[in-house]
Design a protein around this nucleic acid. Structure first.
Length: 556
RNA sequence: UGCCCGGUGGUGUAAUGGUAACACACCGGCCUUUGGAGCCGAGGUUCGAGGUUCAAAUCCUCGCCGGGCAGCCA
């Protein structure tokens, strides 16, 4: 995949030139406490693509140091999503929990060096002793315990002799450091909670800060790429590595992805799931990879998006349309075209013999000749889209109207000669005449029409359900709320509209779930996984760009 | 009044002291059997002020603005 060189690759190039590392080895380190979202995709692509470019490797490592939040369900989902994105960690599926024993030994080593101590201050006291952003902290009264005492206490912590929260192991660094992370950070806490991998083997767990850098080191990671908020932790990780005298990875921080009309925090996504604002983590409206997969987004589009947004340290918000652009670009190339009418309006062609029918040839994908053609049945009663007719056409509307001629795609020119209404004045049917000479859609006399409509033959069509998904939030920044409000007040209450009786061309009677089609002039639609035989269900993946909609919007 | 990071069109990313580039969006036009796709064109002097230099988005100084950090979360 072609990409411009970014600051991360620049650093790596320099490291390689200077011989700092013999090869490049990266890793993607998710915490299994939620599903992966598009922001994670950025990190996944970065790490795996860099490994590929430098003929190195990229590990998958679960950062599972907090058993109170992590679950097996999430590790399964995460692996599935990374695989779907197209990346392979081969046999390098690691877990921070694999290193618990090693990490424990490292802690002992620190204690032996007089660089760690068991502290019995409560959580609240630790906070008070830490000082503030502008004032230095105070040293814990337990800071100067003997090595032996620390060793004994730490062993007893491990043996389960103390309840949760009674003591912790802390690194002994500098309570006056301007970097709060260096003010004797906690590296082990007591948690009598069973872990999804280690079960009840442990009742003390390393903190992320203690586990992360050393896990990278153990795996021989050369370039540890993470998000901006860990910049302030880097000195701490370096301190650990140096005290322990182990392999030193270079940490490089980049800005996480933000998208308009989207929330990206796992906490908020969990809120949406738990309060049933959406139908699970994989709801097609979610920014999760599983949601996007269900929505019909091709993984290639997501990859391309991730490459094209670039990487930098500037915090930014990418327009969701940029993602949609790559989805459309990919689908335009790959999706076969079909015809479906969402809001059917009956059209009777009065000069086409009743009972007669014929098959017309249609191109499956104008962008890909190898996709071939298919036959579409035609008869005297068809359906067109309600929106494609206007009794009193406004300027620039050049679809069907009384006495106006348009083309039915791949079929004939038709001209509307009569409008039938019900007692409420609603249009229920159109009467048209067709020109037999225009079969296929071209007029031998060279006359032109301004519009081409999609259509479906009444007696041949099948009915189906179509789910129209829209963005989940009404505000570009869902987090912008008045005092006391929260992001859920910016939820789009109309983000899902279900249309039951759509008319769909017969070739779509038994489509394969997951496949995406373009319904001509409407958009891309993905076959839903709960679709049933002869009653297909489609999910709208994305609309087509709509010039007519833009014209109307502009007038407002 | 602490420490760390950042500031280039509407958005995102380039330009690594030498004519501010690319993509998306937007606007205008062409083309079109999808008002799709495609094609062509318009729009910025780089947060501000000084300084260094023949030459500054880039280097220096001082401001301004934005973000992160006071979990036994990651």
């Amino acid at each position: 995949m072609q990409k411009r060189i970014d600051f991360i690759r620049e650093i790596i190039n320099k490291d390689m030139e200077e011989g700092r590392y013999a090869k490049v080895h990266t890793r993607f380190p998710p915490e299994p406490n939620g599903y992966l979202h598009i922001g994670h995709a950025k990190a996944i692509c970065l790490n795996f693509e860099i490994a590929k470019e430098y003929q190195g490797k990229c590990n998958l490592r679960f950062d599972d140091t907090n058993p109170t939040k992590e679950e097996e369900e999430y590790v399964l989902a995460i692996k599935k999503d990374i695989g779907w994105l197209g990346y392979d960690w081969e046999d390098r599926e690691y877990y921070a929990s694999n290193y618990f024993e090693k990490l424990y030994e490292m802690a002992i080593e620190l204690i032996n060096k007089g660089k760690a101590y068991v502290c019995e201050l409560t959580a609240d006291q630790i906070r008070e002793y830490r000082g503030t952003l502008t004032e230095p902290g105070n040293e814990s009264p337990y800071r100067d315990r003997s090595v032996d005492e620390n060793l004994t206490l730490f062993k007893k912590m491990r043996d389960g002799e103390y309840p949760d929260g009674t003591m912790v192991l802390r690194a002994k660094i500098d309570m006056a450091s301007p970097n709060l992370n260096m003010r004797d950070p906690v590296i082990y806490r007591i948690l009598h909670t069973s872990h999804h991998r280690t079960g009840d083997k442990w009742c003390i767990y390393p903190t992320y800060d203690w586990a992360h850098g050393q896990s990278d080191s153990i795996e021989g990671i050369t370039h540890s790429i993470c998000t901006l908020e860990f910049q302030d932790h880097r000195p701490l990780y370096n301190w650990f590595i140096e005290e322990l005298g182990i392999h030193h990875s270079r940490q490089i921080e980049f800005a996480r992805l933000n998208l308009t009309y989207t929330v990206m925090s796992k906490r908020m996504l969990l809120t949406l799931v738990e309060n049933n604002y959406v139908d699970g983590w994989d709801d097609p409206r979610m920014p999760t990879l599983s949601g996007m997969r269900k929505r019909g987004y091709p993984s290639a589009a997501i990859r391309k998006f991730c490459v094209n947004i670039g990487v930098a340290k500037t915090e930014s918000i990418v327009d969701i349309e940029f993602l949609e652009h790559f989805v459309r670009e990919e689908l335009n190339r790959t999706a076969e075209r079909r015809m479906a009418v969402l809001n059917p309006l009956k059209v009777v062609i009065i000069n086409y013999p009743e009972g007669q029918e014929e098959e017309l040839e249609a191109i499956n994908n104008p962008e890909d000749a190898s996709a071939g053609t298919r036959k579409i049945p035609f008869s005297n009663v068809i359906y067109i889209e309600k929106d494609d007719f206007m009794e009193n056409p406004i300027p620039k509307f050049y679809r069907l109207s009384l006495n106006r001629e348009v083309r039915l795609r791949y079929a004939y020119f038709i001209k509307c000669v009569d409008i039938i209404k019900d007692e409420n004045g609603e249009i229920t049917e159109l009467r048209c005449i067709y020109d037999p000479a225009t079969k296929g859609g071209d007029a031998p006399d060279g006359r032109k029409v301004k519009a081409t409509l999609h259509w479906v033959s009444e007696k041949h069509s099948i009915t189906g359900e179509i789910r129209l998904y829209d963005r989940l939030f009404i505000k570009e920044n869902p987090l912008a709320v008045p005092e006391g409000g929260d992001f859920t007040m910016n939820l789009n209450t109309d983000s899902l509209k279900t249309i039951k009786n759509c008319r769909i061309e017969p070739s779509l009677a038994n489509p394969k779930p997951g496949i995406v089609f373009q319904f001509e002039r409407l958009g891309y639609f993905c076959v839903a996984f709960d679709t049933k035989n002869n009653h297909p269900v489609f999910i709208r993946t994305a609309t087509l760009k709509d010039e007519w909609e833009r014209i109307q919007k502009r007038k407002k």
